[in-house]
Design a protein around this nucleic acid. Sequence first.
DNA 1: ATGGCGGTATGTTACCGA
Length: 258
Amino acid sequence: MQIATWNVNSLNVRLPHVLGWLAENPVDFLCLQELKMVDEKFPLAALQEAGYDAVFAGQKTYNGVAILRRIARTPAAVATQINLPTFADEQKRVIAATYGDVRVICAYFPNGQAVGSEKFAYKMAWLAGLQTWLQAELTQYPKMVFVGDFNIAPDDRDVYDPVEWAGQIHCSEEERTAFKNLLALPLHDAFRHLEAGDKHYSWWDYRQMAFRRNRGLRIDHILVSDALLPHVSRCWIDKTPRKLEQPSDHTPVIVEIN
DNA sequence: ATGGCGGTATGTTACCGA
């Protein structure tokens, strides 16, 4: 089974990239963030033509999340959950569904803007709600994959310039502690399970040729539960779509679970 | 210190993202 996560920064603009990527990478599940579209605009027909079904939670202009499943290889979604039951939110940042005995959760964490800002307080409150909910989810679903754009770089290996970013948004102690709290549930960072090195990023700023200079952050993650960890055989970042014309600033992260 | 780039709507500029 292969599960991928990708912040597409507008599914309207990036649909050709998504379809092209799925043709090359026929993963079982693809979790998307930042759809930036209302549900009425969701391109379900085009995805179905490509062999994928979806559950989705859209929103105008901002946010929006979806889980795509390969129809031929996966059971239909049941117990679909939109947003955190533990945190009242107008913004669409979470979608979860169960496929067979595997719970797939797709999240777009708040950005936080700047440490100490109102948006940072929102991020931390959202994270507290997330922690409580995931703890309950784990008791119900031992086989869990929790993926998405976390907007947290877990440690300095995940940052192109840790000195410049020290204490800044995505790298602050508060955010990194929240990430560690997720690992304590326990959940496991599939990428770090297999790769200890630095300079592996999932996001690069559009400006200042950041991608070409590999000035990026690893902020898109795949966490797996205890029951699935022994079955994780690969986890990698696919930089290919970041090289296309008009790319998303994020690129897919994929896990293989046998 | 600021803006850089890109997407979107409030639309020829502002807001947000990271």
